[in-house]
């Protein structure tokens, strides 16, 4: 297990370097000179040149990359072109809102997807199965902005149960925190949950069709025992992948929902950075998202090895 972990972490670092090169290259190859944009109408060739020199943009790309990477490794992602704040700090400030929303959304997603997916697989072909399939189809097709606005109209403006937007920290009272997070988490979570439901259903269905299920039934186990003891332990393996993927998306920030609910997450940080051509912030955000994906990937692999003895030995 240790050798496996070390190997995977090493692979992850390699992947991260690869990602950083791509991110860096993209930022410098796309049209639009950030310094020129930053200067706007105050453009002046001398000012422009000195600013570029200050930011190190006049050096060769490779050299720029190496110094950027060196900084990134020590947690220094440079400063924002726009307001001069350290990028690392900007990202860290957004993390609590992003992580709490991601977790709450995933919680709702799993709360819906696991029972719905399992039941519709076990009762496949029945009315219940069709109902679940239809519901998840709707969940997948509804645009998030529309769903979010509908929830605000219903739960906030009409019923007045929850505030329509804003963020409070857990530390400022758990009740208020829940009231604020519930609508954005529901918006994201139900969509995510609809996607996961489908995967849960097909994973359980796939496992149900395996021969060892007949063996288990032949032992005299009840259908529920068969599902719990034999089907689910196999179905978890593919399910973990999708859940990991979904979590990766959520941790990268959910732009539209953050905008609707005035949620100070990473999605909005990145969105603003795009609008402002704030290259360093954008670079930092993308690198962070890639990092999150890789960490979750590693986590998924570790869980895999726990779930599947065939992975463990190889």
């Amino acid at each position: 297990m240790r050798a496996f972990l070390i190997k995977r972490i090493f692979q992850m670092l390699l992947a991260l370097i690869g990602v950083s090169i791509v991110v860096f290259a993209l930022m410098h190859l796309v049209p639009g000179d950030p310094v020129r944009v930053a200067l706007g109408t105050r453009f002046d060739q001398d000012l422009y040149d000195s600013l570029r020199a200050d930011l190190g943009l006049d050096r060769p790309l490779a050299q720029q990359y190496v110094s950027w990477l060196g900084g990134a490794l020590t947690g220094d992602l440079g400063v924002s072109f726009r307001n001069g704040q350290p990028v690392t700090q900007l990202i860290l400030e957004r993390l609590p809102a992003t992580i709490t929303l991601a977790m709450a959304a995933l919680f709702i997603a799993l709360l819906v997807a696991l029972p719905a997916g399992i039941i519709s697989a076990v009762r496949s072909g029945t009315g219940l199965d069709y109902a679940v399939s239809a519901a998840s189809q709707i969940g997948i097709s509804l645009p998030d902005f529309w769903a979010g606005v509908m929830y605000i109209l219903l739960f906030s403006l009409t019923l007045g149960w929850f505030p329509s937007s804003g963020y409070t920290q857990i530390g400022d009272g758990i009740g208020e925190w829940i009231r604020h997070i519930i609508l954005p988490a529901m918006t994201v979570g139900l969509i995510s949950g609809s996607i996961i439901t489908r995967f849960v259903r097909s994973a359980v269905l796939e496992a149900l069709n395996q021969h060892y299920v007949i063996t288990a039934r032949a032992k005299g186990l009840s259908e529920w025992q068969v599902v719990r003891r034999h089907v689910l332990p196999n179905a978890w393996i593919p399910i973990v992948t999708v859940v990991g993927l979904q979590l990766g998306f959520l941790l990268g920030g959910v732009v539209v929902v953050e905008v609707i609910f005035a949620w100070p997450g990473l999605g909005r940080l990145a969105l603003t950075a795009v609008k402002d051509r704030d290259f360093t912030v954008l670079q930092g955000s993308v690198l962070y998202i890639a990092f999150m994906f890789l960490v979750i990937n590693l986590l998924v692999d570790v869980i895999y090895a726990r779930l599947d003895p065939r992975v463990r030995v190889s």
Partner: peptide, 29 residues
Amino acid sequence: RGKGMAMIFQDPMASLNPVRTIGYQLIEP
């Protein structure tokens, strides 16, 4: 089923659960 009447199947790989130990599957009935 599994007590008075037991059944064994053709494909011994597919018929055993890959993520459960032999002991688990043997003790289950």
